[in-house]
Amino acid sequence: MTRKLRCNAVALGVAVALVLTGCGGSDNSANTSANSKGLEKTTIKVGALPIPDPVALYIANAKGFFKEEGLTVEPVTITGGAAALPQIESGALDISQTNYVSTFLAVSKGKKIKLVADSYQAGPNTFNIMVPKDSPIKTVADLKGKTIMVNNLNNIATLAVETQLKVAGLTKADVKFAEKPFPEMGAAVNSGQADAGWITEPFITATQSGLGFRKLVDTMTGQTENLPIAGWMATEEWAQKYPKTLAAFQRAIAKAQQLASTDRKEIEKMLPTYTKIDAKTASVITLGSYPSELNENRLQKVADLMLEYGYITSPIDVKSVIAAPSAG
């Protein structure tokens, strides 16, 4: 009963707000008006984190790649894959950035999501376990019984750490994981709340230069070498409803990925425009790579690792999760 009441109250607020804002749905109908390219929808909202991974979205916007396709893209800052999933389901976002582990976890729980484009792949030293400068931990084996801080439990972070523990003859049962957002992690590890942290850029550079942290191990080596990290997702329903819009998005993103992977300067130029990473930091941080095609063999590796380490209980055929770009 209480939940119903709460829903009613929310619905009441919605109804009133709708009346007062003059019906929020009106801009959707404008999107579907006739356009030269025959797109089902010409204006789309795309969610992206303010980090280097989705740089192609902003490159494509700045270089006019979306415009060439007859597409207007409104980038929306999201706060994480977990929050973005309900947003693409509700229709607040058309497409969103996602990390592949989150996506496959959601798929294993029956969510109807399609991966529509690749975005970011790990490179050497893009995701490291870092320890304070005077830490007694010298090797991965020394982590036994220690606490490792990660940004999310049961996600890419713990998976990557587990692959390194395995090399050292340990399992996740030998360590403790604690959760902390990246921005707070350096300070938390430094003050002794944990013994080590799984950290990515620009925080690797920041903790090295600011706190004197040292790298214990690069977690993107061995089983996780060149691990696909992030891509773009839409709901299955959306992908079926707007195939031409999707294809246009895919072509423009692929073109921008191509540019990002061949010219680092383009990335460095773009980062200060949509993140708070300044030009100086942008020029020194370590970046992964930006593949221009969604390759199912590479992505399958992620799903297989998740199965091996018990993140999912039954295998996922990645091919079924990909909305492949249509030819032409």
């Binding site: 919605v14 709708l18 929020g24 607040a92």
Partner: peptide, 13 residues
């Protein structure tokens, strides 16, 4: 976030 598909509307609500 889950129920209201228009971002501004969600925030105002």
């Amino acid at each position: 976030i889950l129920l209201i598909p228009v971002d501004e509307l969600m925030k105002v609500s």
